[in-house]
Design a binder for these strands. Structure first.
Lengths: 341, 341
DNA sequence: ATCATTTTTTCAAACGTTTGCATAAGATTT
DNA sequence: AAATCTTATGCAAACGTTTGAAAAAATGAT
């Protein structure tokens, strides 16, 4: 009863005393096959639960119908939104998706890329890990292109690797967010930045600093707090910051979760938001609109990035000549109560 | 320069005028191979970027080193937490993970399961889609077991399919949450439920109702709001509910996002939380602790479920005799300010 | 009965790799 | 110089499927 090894085309051929070719053609409705033979074989195959072995097909056709997705983590809303976007489009086109989480490790990223290529995936969507930036090594990424496997950077690209990418302008998002605070009249603006050295943190940090400079506001090292993107890491330093004799009147947080933690501290210490302290986050997480007060933030369109990346991949399949575009999506400033006094 | 087709063992054999067997053995450090040959071949392979074709290996060994993960969606914190948990453990054991999103569709679920089996995955982690429950069809799930592929239900199981599952007791979580409100003295408790017919919604709904019954509180149809798990869907009905002449003094929401939307409405209408209206959510999302007031909720340990599921899979590999356990994790009531007057 | 035609089936190779067994080459002993 | 023993390599089959070309079988025409 229990089929330990799956039934193959050969098993069926043996049963019908015919060749595997006949079975194959019968199952594929090949016109040159006898109608009776076809029906008999198909019925039998159905009965014994025959299912074509895609692995052998992959080998034969050098096509796996599988795409690789390499991301640094899965615990940020933005990342899962991207994957959702990818899935939305690729699902409809019959691709399977292999997901690899690098944990910001160069070694893991390299290892995964190699495994994906060994598995003969037909394309790779990759968000560069931090260690890869730091190490400066990108041989593994170039290898993908050497093998003629489409590579598409999503959200984080590696300059110098010539391929398609879809990213959001973090610098600009940060600049705009900061400027929004300034234009609303806030002058002493703190920044809850992401981990030091993380490119995405530094880009936003720079956007913040450059914006201050543009508006002739002196940069104050004391107003910078470094977080690990998690709420907890913001609590203590934020407490310290708000207890200064000259506390900030505005806060730009590297993401919404950190912003929510900061809001809690600010409220707990008796400041009013946004009258005394305005605050803006980053990501437009689902809950940001429903915090109290509702949180101004920067939308970076994770789902859209995924969908566009998938479309880019599909379009390039049809094209013969390879195009290399870098699509930089402008982030969207979303203004809510936390910055509207 | 550009290797259009990847270099194979045969290419190398041709280069060295030897047989593929020799190359294979040289690359695998087989002891019976001449030291010079070995070195030369390895160096050359390295140089031309040879990489073993896993597809052919899968075919040969009938082992794909790939596991399938089938989930209804990716946009809930709980689901991505589970996947993160899976990845944490499976990554270390050299498995690749193919992720399929069913969108609660029976057809897609069936299709994906078939594709995964066609790809000869070595195990499937599956969270049953709603349509599958509704249709009552589970042949595709039994097929997995017939093929002797380990199947592990995560978060949502299908009764009657004898296999391992790791789930959280939704009924109990809802019961406890409701009881917490009652014990705190709230009597008129509304429930923002999930989509009608969705098993997980109904389980929580039943937990809520049974708890009311236990405490001799009459069930009031007017206090039930149906949402689609998204914040937006709660706004209007919640508005209506709070405008009744006899509004609720407690709210149990099917998840934290819906709870946050409800909180906003409650506040906007001038009620104080938790003095006039207490509210509790579900999921223990990362931001729930940082809302205002911080949101009481029910933790359902998504990451843990993923990790335990992975461990269960790995353990069962070693075991010869197949075990079928259903592990029901007790959810954890997390009490915060939104229910503490 | 012979040939031509049509219909149906089989053969063999291919995809890339591994592996037991056979064989060849080289070294060592008689 | 022949026999024995190592050491190194090659052969062939296997995994499951598809496909062009060849072969076989059935049908029809002369």
């Amino acid at each position: 009863m229990n089929q330990h090894t799956p039934v193959t085309i050969k098993d069926i051929a043996r049963k019908f005393k015919c060749s595997p070719s006949t079975v194959s053609r019968a199952l594929n409705n090949h016109p040159l096959i006898n109608e009776d033979t076809r029906r008999n074989i198909q019925e039998y195959a159905q009965k014994v639960g025959y299912q074509r072995n895609s692995v052998s097909l992959s080998l034969l056709n050098q096509k796996s119908n599988t795409l690789g997705v390499v991301v640094p983590s899965l615990n940020q809303f933005h990342e899962t939104a991207m994957i959702e976007g990818l899935q939305n489009i690729l699902q409809a086109n019959g691709y399977m998706m292999t997901i690899c989480v690098t944990n910001e490790s160069y070694t893991l990223e390299k290892e995964y890329v190699e495994k994906l290529m060994a598995n003969r995936v037909e394309g790779i969507f990759l968000s560069v890990s931090q260690e890869t930036y730091d190490s400066g090594h990108y041989q593994h990424l170039e290898n993908i292109l050497h093998r003629n496997i489409p590579l598409i950077f999503i959200d984080r690209e590696f300059d110098g690797v010539p391929t398609n990418s879809i990213i959001v302008d973090d610098y600009w998002g940060a600049f705009t967010a900061t400027e929004h605070l300034i234009l609303r009249g806030f002058k002493r603006i703190a920044h809850l930045k992401g981990p030091n050295g993380l490119t995405v943190s530094e880009k936003r940090f720079k956007g913040y600093k450059d914006c201050l400079a543009k508006h002739q506001i002196a940069f104050d090292e004391n107003l910078i707090i470094t977080t690990n993107f998690k709420a907890e890491s913001a609590i203590m330093p934020m407490h310290r910051l708000m207890s200064l004799e000259n506390p900030p009147d505005g806060v730009f947080a590297v993401n919404d979760v950190v912003a929510s933690a900061a809001m809690q501290v600010i409220r707990d210490l008796g400041f009013s938001i946004p009258q005394q302290v305005a605050i803006i986050g980053f990501d437009n997480s689902p809950f940001s609109a429903y915090m109290f007060p509702s949180l101004s933030t920067v939308n970076r369109f994770g789902k859209l990035i995924g969908e566009e990346a998938a479309r880019l991949f599909l379009n390039n399949l049809n094209l013969q000549t390879k195009q290399n575009e870098t699509i930089v999506l402008p982030p969207e400033l979303i203004i809510r109560s936390s910055t509207l006094s």
